[in-house]
Design a protein around this nucleic acid. Sequence first.
DNA 1: CAGTTTGTTGCAAACGTTTGAAACAATACT
DNA 2: AGTATTGTTTCAAACGTTTGCAACAAACTG
Lengths: 338, 338
Amino acid sequence: MKGHQVTIKDIAKMLHISPSTVSRALKDHPDINPQTKKNVQELAQKMNYKPNKVALSLLQQESKIIGVIIPEIIHHFFSTVISGIEKVANDAGYHIIICQSNESYLKEVENVQALLSSNIDGFIISMAKTTTRFEHFKNIEEVGVPIVFFDRACEEVKADKVIVDDFNGAFKATIHLIENGCKNLVHFAGPQNLTIGIERKRGFLTALKEKNQILHDYTIQYCDTFEHAQNLIPELLLKHPEIDGVFTVNDATAIGAMIAIKKLNKHIPSDIALAGFTNSFISFMTDPELTTVDQKGYEMGQNAAQLLLNRMQTYDDYDPVTTVLSTELIIRKSSVRK
Amino acid sequence: MKGHQVTIKDIAKMLHISPSTVSRALKDHPDINPQTKKNVQELAQKMNYKPNKVALSLLQQESKIIGVIIPEIIHHFFSTVISGIEKVANDAGYHIIICQSNESYLKEVENVQALLSSNIDGFIISMAKTTTRFEHFKNIEEVGVPIVFFDRACEEVKADKVIVDDFNGAFKATIHLIENGCKNLVHFAGPQNLTIGIERKRGFLTALKEKNQILHDYTIQYCDTFEHAQNLIPELLLKHPEIDGVFTVNDATAIGAMIAIKKLNKHIPSDIALAGFTNSFISFMTDPELTTVDQKGYEMGQNAAQLLLNRMQTYDDYDPVTTVLSTELIIRKSSVRK
DNA sequence: CAGTTTGTTGCAAACGTTTGAAACAATACT
DNA sequence: AGTATTGTTTCAAACGTTTGCAACAAACTG
């Protein structure tokens, strides 16, 4: 039989006093008789009374909950970010409610609506790959709930952002590949409606230019998944056997490429050097270990949460802040030729 | 300036009618004048009215939220389970709120308390490694909120459970290693306060017995992390060079062992055959690819959520159900000797 | 014309909590 | 004795929604 949590009313009835007295006694309000206080506090303790957050949420119009919308929780990068968010949020007395968009625009809109009607105090969002309209974010803005974007930000909405220096990370990785002797580099790029896709490609191209490399018609390939890379590598290397280096927009794609390259009996890094982006924890479990750009997931989560907490204090008429975390090139065996 | 979500009261005021009429109009109640209905519904649509879930939650004593407590979200297995839970939960109109215990008993208790006071409709829990007391679960039981445990279940509490057939999975993997010629197997076992630790070890030992293998004093090692395996392998192989096969309680441990073994210039599988447990998505990215036992994370999540939804219908005086998902041995190169 | 029925709307309570204001008794001051 | 002060407690409203019941007018019945 379904019981229920002990409420202030229960305690009030048992002690034959009013709920308001109980409420004040529990908060150690100076107006309350010390003996009454003692009675109330002892009984509350004994009955394991815990204030009902839903009632508080309704009354105070704040839920102490932060809504997090991400593409997919199973990606290590995102779960790392969530860990960072949760740490900071919990320390400040907040809980997080997590929704996945599964890279679907529609699911993202649904999630926003659902969270909005749950009195969420703030949003932390990383956009779906397929999102190209932004009314749902504008809705949040209208209601006056702060948003912080991370990694994949929406430029059309007034909001704080945490991103990594994608350009520079890609630039550094590409320079590193060229300095290790790559003459015919290829970039496996991400979708160009996401800043990360654009910026990483830009970093790659800028490095090529700086080092006076030739740009072929096959230099940029749009490919950002493990499976696609596995399929793409054989046909690409058949047509262009001169390719001697690949820089991918993320680690999973790099590893897909790695497996395909090894299947073709080409050696990494001597035949083809390889670098990814993310520094996910699989990158040091591959053979050879993968050179990659650390995307600072945990820090990103912490930063996003902190930014949101700050913004919740001072929401009126603010200037959005964009925090850019510096990336770090992690050099491992997949790219180093002696 | 912080606005607010449109409420029934706002609509009522604008149309000079009472909130109750608005409420009924929105639900298409037969008592309401068709013209009034039309006015209300149109205005609600225009103003993007969404019912306030917090108010509903307070009134109806149900939140349409499921609380999920897991050790660590960054583990691929757990994020896979969460995906499965979310799928089923969302389809039934529920949302999930995720808390991590970080394998800490204290954090687990905190999470339970916090969720309890948020009018959560049900719990899905996988216990922390360090949890040996169960009052917090009993608390949930007293309040009458259903719990479903998955993977790491608590035997002392009346609750539904979803587990995999750990015993059988471990048994099959061990038999497979022996049939591939292993004579001196070692098991890297998990903590013995968790069912999974106990059952996997039991499966291993039963297979050894069935195949008349000798049990050495070093056959069982308590080691269940990537780092620990990396450290343990060198000293273990130095002392016992006759070891020719390792079965680990999870994949991360197996990969730690794999890296350490390769560093010692031993060949996998010909010198040492290797099998893990989980079938995490890294297992087919290693070199050689890792033989492992599929733990069915996504199915487990779906099952747990479905079990919980069912239990929420019929909570009174029930007999707990335990769903055992069958495990599947995934044979890859790390264990196959021709 | 009195009474009933029908259609439509509003009132009030409820969920659990907080909080300003009112209420009350007991004590102190003039 | 009358008034002010103090200590303690309760009342009532609020947050947004739902819902049984009351209220009212208009139309119908006998």
